[in-house]
Design a protein around this nucleic acid. Structure first.
Lengths: 110, 110
DNA sequence: AGTAATGCTACATTTTGTGTAGCGTCAAGG
DNA sequence: CCTTGACGCTACACAAAATGTAGCATTACT
């Protein structure tokens, strides 16, 4: 079934946009794909290798979803984020920095 | 296998913290759990019902991971975010607002 | 015609998630 | 004491999702 805000989603009968979003981002590789595309456009095979050779089956599935949701587009230069996609990634753009700090703290704490 | 920054993860041989993080957040219910706990402490059963009755098997699994990573803690008042967990959620705290705008735009565009 | 690159599909296997029932522990009430 | 109820959590059979490998169809260039 297609995932669209307003439509109920696995894990939420309401279809509240935030729940749809969390459901989508909580699928394997979705976050990673957005992350990799944020660094620049890539064609299918290049994106695949950037994503540690995720299976093409799944990559294609995710790209379809992301394109349906207007977060990713495919143009001559390859796959890339739409304006909306860029906006979304910007919302958690500090994750990289945070993750490094977190990792450092964890190593100390354990 | 345990998920810890520095350790290779499904989808990344390097173990770069950001990759570990994206891998964890990209598991079903992880983002949602953090989101629900961000609104306040909850006990196991309450959290479960907030998460649309996710299976206890999985909820327990996720909570274990999140506790290992010092993002969630269990105290007398129930499960809740640690200081680090709160920090993390803050990194994408604007998602709710963004998701509403996104949903509105999508409905117009389709 | 031959070669190479593109996005993408098929399919058998493995991994992950689901749903229901219920266990073991503990604290309060009768 | 002995139920009763709430707690975190586990067992297990079933279903869904992800993986990995091979390769197809199309386009463009030689």
């Amino acid at each position: 079934m297609e995932k669209i805000p307003g439509r109920p989603v696995r894990g939420s009968k309401t279809g509240r946009p935030i729940m749809v979003l969390l459901d989508i981002l909580g699928q394997r590789w979705t976050l990673r794909i957005l992350w990799e595309l944020n660094a620049g456009r890539l064609n299918f095979r290049a994106l695949r290798s950037h994503c540690d050779d995720v299976s093409p089956t799944l990559l294609n599935k995710r790209l379809k979803e992301l394109r349906d949701l207007s977060l990713v587009s495919l143009e001559d230069e390859g796959f890339g984020l739409t304006v909306r996609g860029e906006e979304l990634v910007r919302e958690f753009a500090h994750l990289d920095h945070w993750a490094n700090k977190w990792a450092k703290d964890l190593n100390i704490a354990e």
